[in-house]
């Protein structure tokens, strides 16, 4: 616990994050370039869906990220609630906009993939519907956080909401799956992940890893800004600014 407080001190974390960010950004770039290369040039054409399946390399990682970030947000929120660690509060709050944009990306790319596959921009496909509800959950989280002025209170209230949400996500997911199989009209085929070949799996994993590191990079950048803002009354921030100017 004492280590946690040392590493979780805002001053220490600010410098650590400053050193880590460029490395994480570089790693993100490498992973994404490799993933794009393998996905666009190396992976063979899918015999059922033609070239359109390449949208999968954006859509599926984005959908994974949208859930991963929500779980991170709820986990960090729980730690912040129980041990009252400010850093985790800030991390949780800064997850939401990034997570919401990945959810948005998953929704729009799903629709762009659906148009050539289903012949319609939107179908009530199980994955798209779950993503839509997840998007609503993110919006609710951000709306609640934005409507409370005191940052500590906002963080605690939204952490409770994220925990309620994270218990509900599997239930919602399961319900939507059930509902979908019940109402699935025969003509609408499922855009599933096509039977996966290693040459398709590699770019998929690389893109997912790239998105993950991208998320951590952006979260660190956002947290650094928030630390400066929240700690503006302390001497270390004053010293930091003076040494830079």
């Amino acid at each position: 616990m004492q280590y946690m407080h040392k590493y979780a001190s805002p001053k220490f974390f600010y410098t650590l994050a400053g050193k880590l960010t460029p490395w994480m950004a570089a790693l993100t770039a490498v992973l994404l370039v490799a993933g794009l290369y393998l996905g666009l040039f190396v992976a063979p054409v899918d015999f059922q869906q033609g070239e359109s399946y390449r949208i999968m390399f954006i859509h599926v990682p984005a959908a994974w990220m949208s859930m991963f970030i929500y779980v991170c947000m709820a986990g960090a929120g729980a730690i912040a609630l129980v041990w009252n660690v400010k850093l985790f509060e800030m991390f949780a709050g800064n997850c939401a906009p990034v997570g919401a944009s990945f959810t948005f990306l998953a929704l729009v790319t799903g629709s762009l993939w659906g148009k050539p596959m289903w012949g319609a921009w939107w179908a009530w496909d199980a994955r798209l519907t779950s993503e839509l509800i997840l998007f609503f959950l993110y919006i609710g989280y951000m709306a609640l956080e934005a409507s409370i002025d005191d940052p500590r209170r906002a963080a605690r209230a939204s952490a409770i909401l994220a925990l309620v949400g994270v218990v509900n996500i599997p239930v919602i997911h399961f319900s939507v799956e059930w509902w979908n199989t019940l109402h699935q009209p025969a003509s609408v085929g499922k855009v599933g992940t096509p039977s996966i070949h290693p040459s398709m799996l590699a770019p998929l994993l690389l893109m997912s890893l790239g998105f993950t590191f991208y998320f951590f990079t952006v979260a660190l950048m956002r947290m650094r800004n928030e630390i400066l803002e929240r700690e503006r009354h302390t001497t270390w921030v004053a010293q930091l600014l003076e040494s830079k100017s």
Partner: peptide, 8 residues
Amino acid sequence: LLVLPLYT
């Protein structure tokens, strides 16, 4: 906004 998605 908070409650309706949870009602689904």
